[in-house]
């Protein structure tokens, strides 16, 4: 058994060099550790090096950018929850960040760690996908920027290669002009992972006609799912009645959940529909 070494580079370049093998090659990123910690404790992971990112200045911070936000990967969820600029531009994101785990977990967990953990029932992926967020992945060989929905591959799996770091998340400026609502349905306990989580972001014209819509569902498939069929059903009409029901039916048809302690696949499918309807109704009522 190894006692891991904890290394804390101070620049992104140094961090990437360590990750790419220059520093030993067995480094695992420690980005809060609320997901990785229990794996270490149970002996399911035993890396030689834990690569702490908290001293890499480039990876921190929340900044307004182009009317939207630039969120550093090492921003703690609790800071995201309490950030005035996040609350002002995309309140749904601040609100969702405040619902992850508990205060002690939010004080440790980081945005980058949360996304790289890639549990399909997490709260922030649906909200960020609905907001149209993009992630920036950097390695020594270069940088790529992806829409968040393309970042996730499957349960606990992402496109991130071993020598790559998720450095920041961009929330585009146009999302701040949309209305975004996230609902998490966690009937056993508010501290539980949601049975389903539904986020919808829409832009409505002054007559209430939907100009643009993004629909994302968590907990109901191998990754967060963006449901374009539902989006298409919404665009071009007023958010009401049959249109809402149609969009919710599209969600029900598109999700791909499985049975677990938070519900059977069948139930989750039905709940994805119910909560999509409720989220859409809330958006309609806000007009």
């Amino acid at each position: 058994m190894k006692t891991p070494e904890y290394v804390t580079p101070t620049t992104l370049r140094e961090a990437l060099e360590l990750l790419s093998g220059a520093g030993g090659g067995e480094a695992v990123v420690w980005a809060g550790g609320t997901g990785l910690g229990p794996l270490l404790r149970r002996g399911l992971a035993s890396p030689a090096v834990l690569l702490g990112l908290e001293k890499v200045g480039e990876l921190g911070g929340v900044q307004p950018a182009d009317g939207g936000l630039r969120l550093g990967a090492t921003v703690r969820l609790r800071d995201l929850q309490r950030s005035p600029v996040v609350a002002a531009r995309v309140p749904a994101l601040a609100d969702a960040a405040g619902r992850v785990g508990n205060v002690r977990v939010r004080s440790l967990a980081t945005l980058g760690g949360h996304l790289c953990h890639a549990d399909p029932a997490q709260d922030l992926p649906p909200v960020l996908v609905a907001l149209g967020a993009r992630v920036c992945l950097v390695s020594l060989r270069g940088t790529r920027v992806l829409p968040l929905e393309e970042f996730f591959v499957g349960p606990l799996q992402t496109v991130l290669s071993p020598e790559e770091l998720l450095t920041e998340v961009w929330v585009p400026g146009e999302s701040a002009s949309r209305n975004t609502v996230y609902a998490r349905f966690a009937p056993r306990s508010p501290e539980d992972y949601p049975t389903v989580g539904v986020a919808v972001s829409v832009r409505l014209d002054p007559d209430g006609v939907c100009q643009e819509a993004r629909v994302a569902v968590g907990g109901a498939g191998p990754t967060v799912l963006r449901i374009t069929a539902a989006e298409q059903a919404l665009v071009g009409g007023v958010l009401a009645g049959q249109r809402i029901r149609d969009a919710a039916r599209e969600v029900e048809a598109a999700v791909d959940p499985w049975d677990d302690s938070r519900g059977s696949a069948e139930y989750k499918r039905a709940m994805a529909r119910v909560w999509t309807e409720r989220v859409l109704q809330k958006l309609a009522d806000e007009v």
Binding site: S189, P190, S261
Partner: peptide
């Protein structure tokens, strides 16, 4: 037993 941790085995919390 598959409900092997306190995420899966839910005790009442103060929030509910």
């Amino acid at each position: 037993v598959v409900s092997g941790n306190l995420h899966e085995y839910r005790l009442p919390s103060v929030s509910t």
